[in-house]
Structures are given as C-alpha cells and as structure tokens.
C-alpha cells in the first residue's frame, strides 16, 4: 500500500517546497544590481536544467539495468524519467528564452549560444527516445531499443554542462574566476532551496508517470486476457 501512497506524499511535499522556494525567490533573495527583477528567473531556470539532467541520469541507469537484467520496473522507470526530463528541459529552455530577451536582446540568428544549442539538441535526443517507444512494437523490442537510445543520448549531457567552458558563450559560470561562488549567500541559499524543491517535484512527477504506465500495462494485460476469454 505504501507504494501507492508515494506519489501523493511526494506531490504534497513538492507543492509545499516549491511554494516555499517561490516565496524565497520573490521575497527573500536580494534584487540583482545589474539585471533587476528578471534575474529571479535564474533560480527555477537552472533548477529545471538540473532536474532534467537528473531525470536523464535515471534513464541511463534504469536502461542499463534493463538491458543487463530485463524487467518491467526498470523499463517503466526509464520511460517515466524520460518524459519528466523532457518537461523539465522544456521549462528550462522556455524560461531561458524569456530571460535572454531583455538581457541579451535575444535574437536566435545572431546568438546561437553554445549552451542553448546543445540543450535543444538534448531535448531532440530524448524526444527521439519517446518516438522510438512509439514506433517500436511494444514489449521487449520497444524497451531494449529505447534503452540503447537513452544510454547513447546521455553523451550530450556533459557536452551541455561543459559547453560554457569549451565555446564562447553568453551563459555565466556559477563560479567566479578565483573559484569562489559568484553569488552572495542569500542568493545561493535561495538557489539551493529551489533546486531541492524542483527535485522533489520531479520525483513526484516521475512516480506519478510510473504508476500511470503500470496501470496502463495492467489494463492492457486485462484487455488481452478478456479477448482471450472471448476467443475461447
């Protein structure tokens, strides 16, 4: 029974944590001296990216587990995590665009920023992952083909992460040149809380997706059994 309650507990915790994080973002964190209120996008923008990466890491681990020791649970987890990761990445990208507009005077034709581009590529890779699941025949084939895509696709995550160092980019680094954090303590604390809140929310979403997949499979199994009964 505890298994069924997990999504509810996580969702409640996620909502509370995220409300707290939002309060900190808007009420506690100091105003950025240069950028003004727009800078407050930063907290959720980066948290969503971290949550997305975490989801794709789950995809890799679950996929590898599934290939070595096939089982429905690892496959379901990989599928759920990929879907939620894609949502988080969408949040990250769209917030980034909103932020970039006033700060960089964003014009995609002129600023194909390295981190933006590689993130879009990551989005496309895991969109492809979901397409493989859609187009492969369900069952062992879909799960193992998707697992291979999920594992290979993760190559792009370190590329996104290091893109700020490898190419010239407009994305700031979280560390100043001397290795010290580039943010004052109040901002760092707000950031940390937002990251944790987003991760709890992500876990809630993954667990909900997981139970939906599980129920869909059970439903399908029941339908197949019913049609077998009829055939008899």
């Amino acid at each position: 029974m505890t298994e069924h309650r997990l999504p509810y507990v996580l969702t409640a915790a996620g909502v509370v944590a995220l409300l707290g994080a939002l309060a900190m973002v808007f009420l506690y964190a100091p105003q950025d001296a240069v950028q003004g209120p727009v800078q407050r996008i930063f907290y959720l923008h980066v948290s969503a990216a971290i949550a997305g990466f975490a989801c794709f890491a789950i995809v890799v681990v679950a996929s590898a587990t599934h290939l070595v020791r096939p089982g429905a649970a690892s496959d379901r987890l990989a599928h759920a995590a990929a879907q939620v990761g894609l949502v988080m990445l969408t949040v990250n990208i769209s917030m980034g665009i909103v932020w970039a507009k006033p700060i960089w005077g964003w014009d995609p034709s002129q600023t194909w920023d390295a981190r933006f581009t590689t993130t879009v590529v990551l989005w496309l890779i895991y969109a492809g992952y979901l397409l493989v699941r859609k187009f492969a025949s369900p069952g062992w084939q879909a799960s193992r083909l998707a697992a291979v895509v999920g594992i290979f696709g993760f190559i792009d995550v370190p590329i996104v992460y290091f893109s700020v160092q490898w190419w010239r980019t407009l994305h700031p680094s979280l560390r100043a040149g001397n290795g010290q954090p580039a943010l004052p303590f109040a901002m760092l604390l707000t950031f940390g809380v937002t990251v944790v809140a987003t991760l709890i929310l992500t876990a809630a979403l993954v667990s909900i997706r997981y139970s939906i997949e599980q129920q869909a499979e059970e439903q399908e199994g029941r339908a197949t059994n019913a049609s077998l009964e009829l055939a008899r």
Binding site: L124, G128, L131, V132, F135, F152
Partner: peptide, 30 residues
C-alpha cells in the same frame, strides 16, 4: 559507427527511414 547502429535500430521499428534522421542527427552533431 553511430549511423549503422541507429540504422539497425530504426529498421526494426514501424517508422523505419523516418526515425533514423531524428535519432542520429543530434548525435552526429559533435
């Protein structure tokens, strides 16, 4: 290497040719 792997993968799905560019182009980018 990547092209052949994903061609083998795409050939087994219903979408076939449609899926290959979607999967392999992002990975060819580097």
């Amino acid at each position: 290497a990547l092209g052949s792997l994903f061609a083998a993968l795409a050939a087994q799905t219903r979408a076939k040719e449609l899926l290959l560019p979607v999967l392999v182009l992002p990975l060819w980018l580097p």
